[in-house]
Design a protein around this nucleic acid. Sequence first.
DNA 1: GCAACACATCGACGCTCGTCAATATTGACG
DNA 2: CGTCAATATTGACGAGCGTCGATGTGTTGC
Lengths: 119, 119
Amino acid sequence: MDAMTSTIALPLLDAPCCVSSGDAAMAPAEAETLAKTLKALADPARLRIVSIIAAQDAGATCACDLQEPLGLSQPTVSHHTKVLVDAGILTREKRGTWAYFSLVPGALDSVAAAIAPRR
Amino acid sequence: MDAMTSTIALPLLDAPCCVSSGDAAMAPAEAETLAKTLKALADPARLRIVSIIAAQDAGATCACDLQEPLGLSQPTVSHHTKVLVDAGILTREKRGTWAYFSLVPGALDSVAAAIAPRR
DNA sequence: GCAACACATCGACGCTCGTCAATATTGACG
DNA sequence: CGTCAATATTGACGAGCGTCGATGTGTTGC
């Protein structure tokens, strides 16, 4: 499980490299959360879905507007939109039989800020 | 292959939804490239690797500084660093037996800019 | 030269993901 | 109520991913 070197090995005896001591890194829980969001975006079809919706954000985008430009089957498009909605990137609004999707305001911005803070 | 509604169906007859006509979306090739980069980042271990290196960017970070905080085996850490290097996010520099990693300047910024342009 | 170390590569295992055909569900309209 | 259209869900399949142990490669030091 551990047993890196051997028994005890005083920590600060000789440090050839491995000075570290800086634990100002990302916490495991935060890394997992951000990874889940990035996984939702890390797909060509889903990136294009977000791009199509963002391009005409004069309102919401109908699901039927997504199937054709993507060249994917209807269940696959529905699956991708569900992933994006579950990740908090899109919102689904049902009007009659049609489903309209919009970007969650600030969602992409916060993802970008988490990746490249203070750019 | 298509046959959405039926035979002919004049396009602008009645448009209940599906107005589209806007093809200012992301190109398929661009979506695939960005997805590949995002896939490299969409992993908790790799996010923490990037975070650790970014936290002490006073110089390069030794690979031995990564294994312990991540709690992963040495081959797994080496695999993750290779993925990040191949994605153009990190650079590897070998000094003797040790391998030092640094952030590629501007790499994370361009990813963030691709996700959330003009924020 | 040889042992010890740091890291990379290989092979294998379980698990997740993207995709589709088939089916169910929901709402609109006679 | 019954039919049709739009979407969601299910089940299945192949491909890819994350992880590890074992092994290979190159460097340091005696």
